[in-house]
Simulated scan of single mutants.
Amino acid sequence: MPLKQGAVVDSGHRFDASRHWAASLTLGFCARADGDVSITRMTTARHYGPLRVQRPFYPEGRDGCCHVYLLHPPGGVASGDSLNIDVNVGEGAHTLLTTPAANKLYRADSNGVAWSQHTQLKVANGGTLEWLPQETLAFDGSRGEQTLIIDLQDNAKCLGWEILGLGRPASELPFASGYLEQGFKLTRNGRPLWLERQRIDPGHPRFTGKWGQGGATVHATMWAVGLSDPEEAVQALREHMQASSHWAVTCRRGVILLRYLGTERNQVWDLFQQARDLLRPRLTGHKAIVPRIWLT
């Protein structure tokens, strides 16, 4: 028997315009001495709803970076979903977080209910965080808000990216309706280093205007903060990366920002992996290791 409008299931989830399905994940990482080496351990892993992690992996050795995969079993975000991720990397710890597959932002329901995704990343003095999720794909008609807040202390380091694909071009289903609100905030000791907010709305002239997005269907930003010589790193990126008119790199307040605006997911993925190959050794002293999950 179909549920009536406004019905509430046993879990409390609604199926009307007031629906709200929450999920949260809290992770903590600490560096602990083990003999003459320091090992990053996942010391906190609390979840509510369909957000999980697999066990930590150490493909770079027991005293290397702790790799953790963030899992969202539904595979996508629908109307009313509210996802919250909170990560704390302790002093001297080194953590890499990624996902096993693309995140999908589904079309809003008949009530037009929006979804939300909020991520907060905190890195203590001497800690290093690599935030490397696979791409997010926004289906036509999706409505929601994404925020990413990165809070660094003292000489903490962070390397990361966010990749967004609009519509499903292979199925000839463009992102023709809906909207996405995106917000980014990066601070060090509470002082803003990078603040950005944008609304992606196919009904706005900026969406197709050459002075705006120009009809691009793939938007991506990569950042690196904590490098000893960011200007040298920028020069290395310009000299050694694949030549293309779709990307540019700048450095402001010690933050490297590499931007991509184009139409090819594979192109931006290749570019960002090239950039990581150049930046990670400069940031951490270790070559870039490809997480195993990307190869499955």
Results as ranks from 00 to 15, higher is better:
R191E: 15
L186C: 04
G209Y: 02
P205I: 11
Q235Y: 01
G203A: 10
A220N: 09
A224S: 10
Q213T: 12
G212E: 14
M241Y: 13
S228F: 02
G209A: 12
Q213A: 14
L195Y: 03
R191N: 13
V218N: 11
S228N: 08
N189A: 07
R206W: 07
F175M: 06
E196C: 02
A176S: 15
V218Q: 10
A216T: 06
L227M: 06
L180S: 14
P192G: 07
G215S: 11
A224M: 03
A233S: 10
T221Y: 05
K185P: 05
V225Y: 10
D201G: 08
W211R: 01
N189E: 12
G183C: 04
D229L: 04
W223E: 08
K210E: 02
H219P: 01
H219Q: 14
G178H: 07
Q198R: 07
H246T: 15
T221C: 09
F175G: 03
E231N: 13
A216I: 06
E239F: 01
Q242V: 06
E181P: 00
S228E: 13
R199P: 08
Q198S: 12
W223C: 12
D229F: 00
A236M: 09
P205S: 10
E232K: 12
T208A: 15
S245M: 07
L193H: 01
L237S: 01
A220K: 07
G209S: 13
L180D: 14
L186W: 05
E196G: 02
G209L: 00
G183P: 00
I200Y: 11
H246G: 07
P202I: 02
A220C: 09
I200G: 08
Y179P: 07
K185G: 15
H204A: 15
P202V: 03
A216H: 03
V218D: 13
P230L: 10
A220I: 12
W211C: 00
W223S: 09
Q242S: 15
E232V: 13
L186S: 00
D201L: 06
A243T: 11
G190V: 08
V225H: 12
D229M: 08
T221K: 04
L227R: 10
E231K: 11
D229C: 08
T217Q: 10
Q213H: 14
I200W: 07
V234G: 02
G214E: 11
Q235S: 12
L186K: 03
F184K: 03
G214Y: 11
E181I: 14
H246C: 15
Q242M: 08
G226W: 02
S228A: 15
P230R: 12
W211I: 01
L180A: 14
M241K: 08
M241I: 14
Q182W: 01
N189S: 10
Q198T: 10
L180V: 14
S244F: 02
K210Q: 05
R199E: 09
A233Q: 04
G178L: 06
E196L: 02
F207L: 05
G212D: 14
D229H: 09
R199M: 10
T187R: 12
P192Y: 03
E232N: 15
A233H: 04
A243Q: 09
E181D: 13
